[in-house]
Design a protein around this nucleic acid. Structure first.
Length: 262
DNA sequence: ATGTCCGTAACCTACGGA
C-alpha cells in the first residue's frame, strides 16, 4: 500500500499540479493539509477512483484523506480536540473554535490520521501553548487507537537539530524546542515509528522550504512533515518528492511517499 | 532567511498568516 502526505498550501491554487502529481505518484491513500477551502475540488480524483474525506471550513487550515482502497469510519476532528479562542474578538465573547486540522479514516485496514498541527508562531504567543495542548490531547487519541495506524501530516516540529538547515538560526524559535519534541516522543511512545524518507538530492530529508530568499535552491529546508506508523507495517520505501517543489506554482512543502506492506 | 505565496475583502492594493 502506498500512502502519501502533502501540505498543498491551497488545493485550489495547486489543483493542476495536484491532479498531475496524483496520477504520477499513484498513491492508494493521500493525506493533505492546508487545503484552504470549504469545498474540495475532487472531480479528477474521483475519476481516478478515489473517495474523499475533507475537513475544511474556508480560508485557513483544511485537511483531507483521499483513498482508493476504502474510506470508512471518518472522523472530522478528534475526541477532546482543543479549539483556539481568537484574540481579535472581545475576550468575553470569544469561544474557542475547533479548527479544521485533523481528519481520520480507515483505509484498506489501516487507521489513518491526516494532521495539520498548529504552527505555534512564537514562544510567547498564545498559539504556542495551544500547539502543545493540541498535541497532548491528540496523544490521548493515539493511545486508544486501533492498529495498524498511520499518523501523518504537517507537524510543524523538526524532530532533531539535523532536521533543520542550521539549528543556530532557530534560537528562540518554535518548531525545535524541547517542549515540542517531547510531544513527538509521547506519540512515538504510543507504539509508532518515525518513518524517515530518503531525500532525492543532498543528504538531509527536508520536506519544507520557505518560498522566500531562494531557500529551496540553497537547500535550506526543514523536516516538519512526518510519517508515524505502527511497526507491524513493513516500510518498503519512503521518499521525498522533491520534484514537486520545483517549477511554476509549487507548494512550499514536498510530498512524502511511503510504500508499506501490512 | 524575511527576497514569496496564499485567500480574502474590497477593490485594481493591503492584509494576516505561514
Amino acid at each position: 500500500m502506498r500512502i502519501a502526505t502533502w501540505n498543498v498550501n491551497s488545493i485550489t491554487a495547486r489543483l493542476p499540479r495536484f491532479n498531475e502529481w496524483l496520477e504520477l505518484a499513484d498513491p492508494d491513500v493521500v493525506c493533505l493539509q492546508e487545503t484552504k477551502t470549504a469545498s474540495f475540488p475532487s472531480d479528477r480524483a474521483e475519476e481516478l477512483g478515489y473517495e474523499v474525506a475533507h475537513n475544511g471550513d474556508g480560508r485557513w487550515n483544511g485537511v483531507a484523506i483521499l483513498s482508493r482502497v476504502g474510506l470508512e469510519d471518518v472522523s472530522l476532528q478528534f475526541e477532546g480536540q482543543p479549539g483556539y479562542a481568537n484574540d481579535d474578538e472581545d475576550a468575553l465573547l470569544s469561544v474557542p473554535k475547533v479548527e479544521a486540522r485533523a481528519v481520520g479514516a480507515t483505509c484498506g485496514g489501516v487507521r489513518v490520521w491526516s494532521l495539520y498541527v498548529p504552527n505555534g508562531r512564537a514562544l510567547d504567543s498564545a498559539h504556542f501553548p495551544y500547539k502543545l495542548e493540541w498535541l497532548d490531547r491528540f496523544r490521548d487519541v493515539v493511545a486508544a487507537e486501533q492498529h495498524p495506524l498511520v499518523v501523518t501530516g504537517d507537524f510543524n516540529i523538526a524532530p532533531t537539530d539535523d532536521d533543520v538547515w542550521d539549528i543556530k538560526a532557530f534560537a528562540g524559535s518554535t518548531h525545535v524546542t524541547a517542549d515540542e519534541r517531547a510531544r513527538l516522543t509521547a506519540l512515538l511512545d504510543c507504539g509508532l515509528v518515525d518513518v524517515v524518507p530518503r531525500p532525492q538530492k543532498y543528504d538531509k530529508p527536508f520536506t519544507y522550504y520557505d518560498y522566500r530568499a531562494g531557500m529551496f535552491h540553497k537547500n535550506m529546508g526543514m523536516r516538519i512533515d512526518l510519517f508515524y506508523a505502527s511497526p507491524s507495517l513493513t516500510v518498503l520505501d519512503a521518499y521525498i518528492d522533491r520534484d514537486a517543489r520545483k517549477g511554476t506554482g509549487p507548494s512550499d512543502h514536498c510530498p512524502v511517499v511511503v510504500d508499506l506492506s501490512p
